[in-house]
Design a protein around this nucleic acid. Structure first.
Lengths: 152, 152
DNA sequence: TCAACATAGATGCATCTGCAATTATATTGA
DNA sequence: TCAATATAATTGCAGATGCATCTATGTTGA
């Protein structure tokens, strides 16, 4: 309960930069995607997870855990994906409360269409500014920060 | 124009983690602040910059450059701060198009009231998960990513 | 077995955000 | 000097987000 609980200057600087820079870089990537008429990154990410999950699909709460999003965010994200035809949603047979989500072929098409633009954006706004070692270190640092306890 | 422009697997992983984890950690911190009835982090950040700027204040576009935000985001952020009485806004004498922003004493009070909660949140969701070396490395990596070319 | 509690998911409402367009002043160059 | 262009900042509108709450099903233990 003493000041040992407070972050020191180094931690404050590091934190402030993480917040600003990651948000700024992310915004740049989103702009590149939008300029080409593509949906936001979150949709791409969700579709990626669903493609990865294969035939058995994913439950919305599993998607939520993977994406570290709030429950209502996933609910609405999935709504949009279903409405756009990129995802199939049907009731779970094991769990009466739940659903199962699967990517459609149209969803797969979107992933393929977006990747050239998205990959280029990652390259331009992110990868090109870091050495291979930096990139690996950053991945490691993020893994340490990830305690997999999504908000709410 | 060949595939050298595309990020490799390491870069993709690193990027994906950066996006998800930084957003997730940030959300956790925001939740802590809201739970105590405080305004969002962006307001705190803006006030910090204005306090740092001292008596001469800051122009909105300078604030924008510091915070790496879009222009309209700053415009509205400042609106809220002014309306809440945390910031004074008056026309610039040098530049007829512009304004000068200064933190009020009420704004300073907010910073002081928020810091115990905010600092603790940074500590709990961020600093505690990283070693001092990690923290320094992360700060350095973020500085490399920061080319200070705000979106739009 | 059934009341208490936990989990899955959706949604109304207020707020916030992004985009594009707008107003207004400043700067530049033929 | 003044038309063309650039910069500072705001705003209408549509869509996205956060919070709290709600419905429905599942699980647990006396």
């Amino acid at each position: 309960m003493i000041k040992s609980e407070m972050p020191d200057d180094e931690a404050q600087t590091s934190w402030a930069r993480l917040v600003r820079v990651s948000q700024s870089v992310l915004a740049s990537v989103e702009v590149d995607l939008r300029r080409e008429g593509f949906p936001p990154l979150a949709q791409y990410d969700a579709l990626l997870e669903l493609r990865r999950a294969g035939d058995k699909g994913l439950r919305p709460f599993e998607l939520r855990q993977e994406m570290l999003l709030a429950q209502y965010s996933v609910s609405r994200l999935v709504d949009r994906l279903v409405k756009a035809g990129f995802v199939d949603r049907h009731d779970s047979e094991d769990d009466g409360r739940g659903q199962v989500l699967k990517i459609t072929s149209s969803g797969r098409d979107l992933l393929e269409a977006m990747w050239p633009i998205y990959g280029k954006a990652i390259q331009n706004h992110f990868a090109v500014k870091l050495s291979p070692t930096d990139i690996r270190n950053l991945a490691h640092l993020m893994a340490q920060l990830d305690t997999r306890q999504p908000v709410k």
